[in-house]
Design a protein around this nucleic acid. Structure first.
Lengths: 227, 227, 227, 227
DNA sequence: CATGAATGAGCTTTCATTCAT
DNA sequence: CATGAATGAAAGCTCATTCAT
């Protein structure tokens, strides 16, 4: 079993060495996110990553132990970032409809800005979640957004705006589905639909449609036609 | 540059030989669908495929020219099957709501019965649609369902049941999204949501939710609470 | 799991291909015996072997699957050869003492002519017999010599020459010990004893001593001093 | 060329530092004996040793200069211990037969209690005694037991018990062979003989056999059957 | 004295592909 | 048409060793 170094947390002084060690590890991790996030686990090459980090293959094994372990670290970091971003989402619960629109906009935006997130999740699902399973942090991944969404829905129900009995999980999945799928599958969809999905107009239209669909699903009273 | 043989073209007599050749080709293709459909393009091994087909690596090169070309053939065949299945879908246009339910049930069912379809599309999208692009049959892939769905929506609108201005494409994407994403990402979602998505109850619930959401999005008049 | 080719035993005609394939496999095996037999499992390099066989690393994996599997094949082959040689040993059971001398001479000679045998056994014992354990032919390794020796001893006992109650196993071990140890450990022994063990005189003396010791151990009546 | 530090030589004050330095060196050496003694020179990993010593790779280079040099030190120390143990052997020369039995028992016991001794010697012989040759202490390795044994034999001869003309070296080699070989090769022998060699009964039997064989080889008059 | 970080050479192994009949 | 043998490039990984404090 390879020895994996976790940069010394116990170091008395945060000297130059530790900093640079941390830096190496982090540079590698960032490079790995980029490369894995473009090519998936299988497609990525260790050397590609180490080169992108201006380091050496060897360092990946020094800090992470194996390509797979690095991938696990990448998945963890990616989730962490996503959760962090979700946690930063400031919602005005007193205006449930707007809050819901904001959640949709956030997720749609996040997927667009972080294509590596999509690729990594696809790669991980190709492997049937094997690496998340291995992760010791698996428990911490549950979405803070779920809770927030739950509060949004609750406040909407209290206000009589949203229909009762809705589960945050379902609404969350709906929002995620519609955004994720569109972006993840845009290349085959392009061929299938015979049109571009990438241009700003198409993207805006789809955000509008998601929003519309979610609101119609959630609202107690049908809104008048929006488009 | 490898010479790719299309058996039918060169065979002198349409005899036993050609048949067995066709059979070999088809066995290889089927095996390739299975293997690519489980591991993706990168994860699949040429030998795995030839062994699954009880044939030899060499035959893959004989019939298809390269691993990638085989993958293209697999994608083509997979699309063909999907379109064929969609084409077989018999809808009663006089009952638009039921027809819509049937479309949803069909797609949800198809994804479930054909996990290789999902994996293949994911793999193809990972490669930004490179292989579909290479395919000469790219034009034939557009969904017959789209057209059917278009007619369903039209008939629903005519009957005053569905709201006007709906695009079949959007509704199709919505249905596809919600089914595909759920199944494709079930492993990471399981961790994320902290619950199983695979059991019959969960699956039935989600079909119900999709149906509900689509109907609410499409219907001119809000239905009373369904669940 | 790598696919290992066993050269087609089912080939109708032993054509050039099969012959050359067999040849490649055998050349690799012979080279492996030489290299493993000089450096042990750990010390040997795959490339060393393939180069010695004027073949390629790849071929080792083609025919044997892994370095370890090749080592297993080497151990098997080495045992096979040893057993074969033992089996060829023609003993005159009517002259038990001479027969015993012949067994001793044979084993002492075999160890000297086959230093790789010693090195391989040492390497295998370093690994606690792991590879022999893996071998499917493990059962076939028991020495034919044991049986022959058993008959020699029996006939000697019947003739009243050898003392009763002797076990062939013990005598065999004694002969093997004294020959094997001397040759296997000659380098450290040289230092330890401060003399050369390799020269013909020393070798002949030791054979004489082994013979003497074994006979004294075995004979019912003490022979007169031999040296 | 690495600078090898002999702590005692450079230490200014024979204070705490030197002691702890000596301690580190010794801990490393002990760990090295263990690891080399289990895996041989090739199989052992520098990191394994430093970890077993709760020290660092670097320290091995600091104190010994290289892995090989450490191995030399290990061989030296191992020989030293063996000689020391032999030297402690108290023999009653007035009872030559018993003294001989004691020598046999000692060596058989030592091999059993010190499997690392066997592995190290095997490893060293695999390398044709290269490291002992490098050792500056090579001269000191000759066995004190040889001399003792010589005296035992002499006194036995004087008493008319042992036959004349016996060389201590030969008897020593005989005793060593039969003990060492049995233990060193027990794994392959197990397979070869189809029986366990490790259990107490088998071990006791073999000690008995060695003793018997040695005595028969040495005694002037045949003893009556012992077993 | 001690230590974490870094390194490059080289190891075993894998893979898609082509050769030779 | 089919097949076993062969191949080279490169992948992931390991190791003893040295650097920089």
């Amino acid at each position: 079993m390879p020895t994996v170094r976790k940069p010394a947390a116990t170091a008395r002084k945060a000297g130059v060495r530790e900093q640079s060690a941390q830096a190496t590890r982090e540079t590698l991790l960032k490079a790995a996110i980029k490369v894995f996030g473009k090519q998936g686990l299988n497609g990525a090459r260790v050397e590609q990553i180490s080169r992108a980090a201006k380091s050496h293959d060897r360092m990946i094994y020094y800090y992470f132990g194996s390509k797979e372990a690095l991938f696990v670290a990448v998945i963890e970091e990616t989730y962490r970032r996503f959760n962090e971003a979700e946690a930063r989402l400031a919602l005005d619960l007193s205006r449930p409809v707007q809050a819901l629109r904001d959640v949709i906009a956030f997720m749609w935006g996040y997927y667009q800005k972080h294509p590596e997130f999509i690729t990594l999740l696809n790669s991980e699902n190709l492997h049937r979640g094997r690496h998340i399973g291995k992760s010791s942090k698996a428990g911490e991944y549950s979405s803070p957004a779920l809770e927030v969404l739950s509060r949004v829905l609750g406040s909407g129900m209290d206000a009589g705006l949203f229909r009762l009995g809705l589960r945050a999980r379902d609404v969350y999945l709906m929002i995620a589905s519609m955004g994720y799928f569109y972006l993840s599958n845009r290349y085959t969809l392009s061929t299938f639909l015979g049109e571009t999905l990438d241009d700003p107009v198409a993207l805006a239209h789809w955000q509008q449609f998601i929003t519309d669909a979610v609101l119609r699903t959630v609202l107690a009273t049908v809104p008048p036609a929006t488009s």
